[in-house]
Nucleic acid binder design. Structure first.
Lengths: 229, 229
DNA sequence: GAAAGGCTTAAGACAAACCTTAAGAAAAAC
DNA sequence: GTTTTTCTTAAGGTTTGTCTTAAGCCTTTC
């Protein structure tokens, strides 16, 4: 698993950029320098970052636009770095979604502390609503709607995904077919319907393909299905 | 024990009301017709109902007000019946706490299915709240539908599970075979039937396998079964 | 203590629930 | 408008649960 924390440093001044990267390295995070707004966007598309340090005064595309772009597509924390130390700028930055604000010239230790602080805050709130359901070696990410089994991603259809999600929210609970059907399909269950069976069967197939040595879904005769513990 | 399921039918049109009552009777529930909003409220105060079928267009007091009243004082499930088949009405009804929505003209079978569905949902969520029945070292979890004896989980069939559940809800009560049969099977008991005996026997076997040093189910000669204290 | 009736248990026939597969229908993507 | 994916339906086969039967055991009654 990749636990490296990546930080994107968007700052056109070469010296300041290097200094920031040095501070970051010292804290055992991995910095990625970017010297313009457009360059920053390229990195952001290629790779997931845990934090962005962003100078407001930039060539190519100004910092505020970058910030808006970042906010459009996700929830990466952003620390603004600015020479304009006016209250106005600060308030405006925070309002547009920045997580913290550092003004130039800055104190090295303070930058380090603020980075840690923001990362800690995000980690906590992410854990709180990071919704990844796990059972045995199945990892179901509710946010990205992806399922990994035995390390590899498997492709599920919407129905299969919903069935698995439901089962995994209460791994010990037995779900009756009526319950499954009405939860997943949102329609009335009219008894003696083979549809759920087929989808469960297909789901089992895909899971088994990813890991043939394990059984995941258990049939409880006359009652329904549940995760096998 | 009174197991009758009572359904209040609030509908001013005489024919439709009668039709609904007929459908309900066919499913072995007990309908109570009411022809106005105020009449409905009187019944609701006198008696506990398991479900309300509610027409939105009513003399006396309109359906939405009735719905609000019902929601004020409890959690009886409500199915709305309406001639206005606009999405708006449907969404609004569901938002104000209705459990389902049927538009006129309705299909007889569909009404029947929806009634069953809503009752089933309510039953499940009600049961789930009751959590876990315990007797000696038997732990019966109503939500996950699992039974643990002496620390280990034992696998029961539906019949066995239902028998055990019934016995454990009133551990001191003696359940006659007729009572057991009619509760578990939902059919009339016609005497001289060995079926209950066999299932109790199998159930005892499974319990004894998990803990050979304990007896759980007691035979009361000529009367029935109960949990041994 | 023998007879009668109720209870237990085991085995096998049967039925119901379930699984898999494949093909056609429907929906989504291109 | 065509291709691809996904969903549903139906059929045949498998597994598991249920019910019946029947033999034997236990409790009560006379």
């Amino acid at each position: 698993m990749d636990e490296t924390i990546r930080i994107l440093v968007v700052e056109d001044d070469d010296d300041i950029n290097k200094l920031l990267c040095k501070i970051i390295k010292k804290s055992n995070y991995k910095p990625q320098p970017a010297y313009s707004g457009t360059e920053a966007l390229i990195y952001l598309e290629k790779q997931k970052y845990d934090l962005v340090l962003l100078d407001l005064m930039l060539p190519g595309m100004n910092g505020e636009k970058i910030l808006a772009k970042i906010r459009e597509q996700g929830t990466i924390p952003v620390i603004i770095i600015s020479a304009k130390n006016e209250k106005e700028t600060k308030i405006h930055s925070l309002r547009s979604g920045a997580d913290d604000f550092i003004s130039k010239p800055f104190d090295v230790d303070e930058v380090s502390a603020r980075i840690d602080s923001v990362l800690r805050r995000y980690k906590e709130s992410n854990i709180a609503h990071k919704k990844v359901l796990t059972h045995k070696d199945i990892h179901l990410d509710l946010e990205t709607k992806t399922v990994h089994v035995n390390g590899e991603e498997i492709a599920l259809t919407v129905r299969e995904y919903k069935i698995l999600t439901l089962l995994m929210t209460s791994p010990k609970k037995i779900f009756s077919k009526a319950n499954l059907f009405e939860s997943v399909w949102g329609e009335i269950y009219h008894g003696d319907d083979n549809t759920v069976n087929v989808h469960v069967s297909n789901l089992r197939n895909k899971l088994a393909k990813a890991n043939p040595n394990e059984e995941y879904i258990e049939t409880i005769w006359g009652m329904g299905y549940r995760m096998k513990s």
